[in-house]
Measured scan of single mutants.
Amino acid sequence: VGDQVLEIVPSNEEQIKNLLQLEAQEHLQLDFWKSPTTPGETAHVRVPFVNVQAVKVFLESQGIAYSIMIED
């Protein structure tokens, strides 16, 4: 199991704000291929294997929908 690319769908401005804060966490080494800008629009982010669980827990705790787009 390696890195994953998640497709994330924020449903409101609050969730977009939370994702932008997540993007700013440099220690997570997230690679946003497509940043969140509009509710209902997908964002794509590559998550290093060591941080996959932490990111998924965060998304679930914020009620942000996501799916695994690419499993490496």
Rank of each mutant, 00 (worst) to 15 (best):
residue 1 V to E: 12
residue 1 V to M: 13
residue 1 V to F: 14
residue 2 G to M: 08
residue 2 G to R: 07
residue 3 D to T: 11
residue 3 D to C: 07
residue 3 D to L: 08
residue 3 D to K: 07
residue 4 Q to C: 08
residue 4 Q to M: 12
residue 4 Q to H: 09
residue 5 V to K: 06
residue 5 V to H: 09
residue 5 V to F: 11
residue 5 V to D: 05
residue 5 V to C: 08
residue 5 V to N: 10
residue 5 V to L: 10
residue 6 L to D: 00
residue 6 L to I: 08
residue 6 L to C: 01
residue 6 L to G: 00
residue 6 L to Y: 06
residue 6 L to N: 00
residue 7 E to D: 04
residue 7 E to T: 10
residue 7 E to A: 15
residue 7 E to P: 00
residue 7 E to C: 08
residue 7 E to M: 13
residue 8 I to M: 05
residue 8 I to P: 00
residue 8 I to H: 00
residue 8 I to W: 01
residue 8 I to T: 02
residue 8 I to D: 01
residue 9 V to M: 14
residue 10 P to G: 03
residue 10 P to H: 01
residue 10 P to D: 01
residue 11 S to P: 02
residue 11 S to K: 15
residue 11 S to L: 13
residue 11 S to M: 15
residue 12 N to A: 02
residue 12 N to K: 03
residue 12 N to D: 13
residue 12 N to W: 02
residue 13 E to Q: 10
residue 13 E to P: 09
residue 13 E to K: 10
residue 13 E to V: 10
residue 13 E to H: 12
residue 13 E to S: 09
residue 14 E to N: 08
residue 14 E to K: 08
residue 14 E to I: 08
residue 14 E to R: 06
residue 14 E to S: 10
residue 15 Q to R: 00
residue 16 I to A: 03
residue 16 I to M: 09
residue 16 I to Y: 05
residue 17 K to A: 12
residue 17 K to S: 09
residue 17 K to C: 06
residue 17 K to E: 11
residue 17 K to T: 08
residue 18 N to V: 15
residue 18 N to R: 12
residue 18 N to C: 08
residue 19 L to P: 01
residue 19 L to Y: 01
residue 19 L to D: 00
residue 19 L to S: 01
residue 19 L to R: 00
residue 19 L to H: 00
residue 19 L to Q: 00
residue 20 L to Q: 08
residue 20 L to K: 12
residue 20 L to E: 07
residue 20 L to N: 07
residue 20 L to D: 03
residue 21 Q to W: 15
residue 21 Q to I: 13
residue 21 Q to K: 13
residue 21 Q to H: 13
residue 21 Q to M: 14
residue 22 L to R: 02
residue 22 L to H: 03
residue 22 L to C: 03
residue 23 E to C: 07
residue 23 E to F: 10
residue 23 E to V: 13
residue 23 E to I: 11
residue 23 E to K: 14
residue 23 E to P: 05
residue 23 E to W: 12
residue 24 A to E: 11
residue 24 A to Y: 09
residue 25 Q to P: 02
residue 25 Q to W: 15
residue 25 Q to I: 11
residue 25 Q to E: 10
residue 25 Q to T: 11
residue 25 Q to A: 12
residue 26 E to C: 08
residue 26 E to W: 08
residue 26 E to H: 10
residue 26 E to R: 05
residue 27 H to C: 05
residue 27 H to F: 08
residue 27 H to R: 07
residue 27 H to Q: 08
residue 28 L to M: 10
residue 29 Q to K: 10
residue 29 Q to I: 05
residue 29 Q to E: 10
residue 29 Q to Y: 08
residue 30 L to G: 02
residue 30 L to V: 11
residue 30 L to C: 05
residue 30 L to M: 08
residue 30 L to R: 01
residue 30 L to P: 01
residue 31 D to Q: 09
residue 31 D to K: 13
residue 32 F to W: 15
residue 32 F to N: 02
residue 32 F to K: 02
residue 32 F to C: 03
residue 33 W to K: 08
residue 33 W to F: 13
residue 33 W to P: 05
residue 34 K to I: 09
residue 35 S to C: 08
residue 36 P to S: 06
residue 36 P to L: 04
residue 36 P to D: 02
residue 36 P to N: 02
residue 37 T to D: 05
residue 37 T to S: 12
residue 37 T to G: 08
residue 37 T to K: 05
residue 37 T to A: 07
residue 38 T to D: 07
residue 38 T to N: 09
residue 38 T to V: 15
residue 39 P to C: 04
residue 39 P to K: 04
residue 39 P to M: 06
residue 40 G to K: 04
residue 40 G to A: 03
residue 40 G to L: 06
residue 40 G to V: 01
residue 41 E to L: 07
residue 41 E to H: 06
residue 41 E to R: 05
residue 42 T to Y: 08
residue 42 T to F: 06
residue 42 T to P: 14
residue 43 A to D: 01
residue 43 A to V: 14
residue 43 A to C: 08
residue 44 H to S: 07
residue 44 H to T: 15
residue 44 H to E: 09
residue 44 H to Q: 14
residue 44 H to M: 13
residue 45 V to R: 00
residue 45 V to F: 03
residue 45 V to W: 02
residue 46 R to W: 08
residue 46 R to I: 05
residue 46 R to F: 10
residue 46 R to N: 05
residue 46 R to E: 02
residue 46 R to L: 10
residue 47 V to P: 01
residue 47 V to W: 01
residue 47 V to E: 00
residue 47 V to R: 00
residue 47 V to A: 02
residue 47 V to F: 01
residue 47 V to C: 02
residue 48 P to N: 05
residue 48 P to K: 05
residue 48 P to S: 06
residue 49 F to V: 10
residue 49 F to N: 11
residue 50 V to M: 11
residue 50 V to P: 13
residue 50 V to C: 07
residue 50 V to G: 09
residue 50 V to H: 13
residue 50 V to R: 09
residue 50 V to D: 10
residue 50 V to W: 11
residue 51 N to K: 07
residue 51 N to S: 15
residue 52 V to G: 03
residue 52 V to Y: 09
residue 52 V to S: 06
residue 53 Q to Y: 08
residue 53 Q to D: 14
residue 54 A to F: 14
residue 54 A to M: 11
residue 54 A to E: 14
residue 54 A to R: 07
residue 55 V to P: 00
residue 55 V to G: 00
residue 55 V to W: 01
residue 55 V to E: 00
residue 55 V to R: 00
residue 55 V to Y: 02
residue 56 K to L: 11
residue 56 K to G: 03
residue 56 K to H: 06
residue 56 K to T: 09
residue 57 V to R: 11
residue 57 V to N: 13
residue 57 V to M: 14
residue 57 V to D: 12
residue 57 V to W: 14
residue 58 F to Q: 04
residue 58 F to L: 07
residue 58 F to G: 01
residue 59 L to Q: 00
residue 59 L to I: 01
residue 59 L to D: 00
residue 59 L to P: 00
residue 60 E to I: 06
residue 60 E to D: 12
residue 60 E to F: 04
residue 60 E to A: 07
residue 61 S to P: 00
residue 61 S to V: 11
residue 61 S to C: 06
residue 61 S to T: 12
residue 61 S to H: 11
residue 62 Q to D: 02
residue 62 Q to N: 15
residue 62 Q to V: 11
residue 63 G to M: 05
residue 63 G to H: 07
residue 63 G to L: 05
residue 64 I to E: 00
residue 64 I to A: 00
residue 65 A to C: 06
residue 65 A to H: 13
residue 66 Y to F: 10
residue 67 S to N: 13
residue 67 S to H: 08
residue 67 S to P: 01
residue 67 S to F: 11
residue 68 I to E: 06
residue 68 I to Y: 05
residue 68 I to R: 02
residue 68 I to L: 08
residue 69 M to A: 06
residue 70 I to T: 15
residue 70 I to M: 13
residue 70 I to Y: 11
residue 70 I to A: 11
residue 70 I to F: 12
residue 71 E to C: 08
residue 71 E to Q: 15
residue 71 E to G: 11
residue 71 E to T: 11
residue 72 D to P: 11
residue 72 D to M: 14
residue 72 D to T: 12
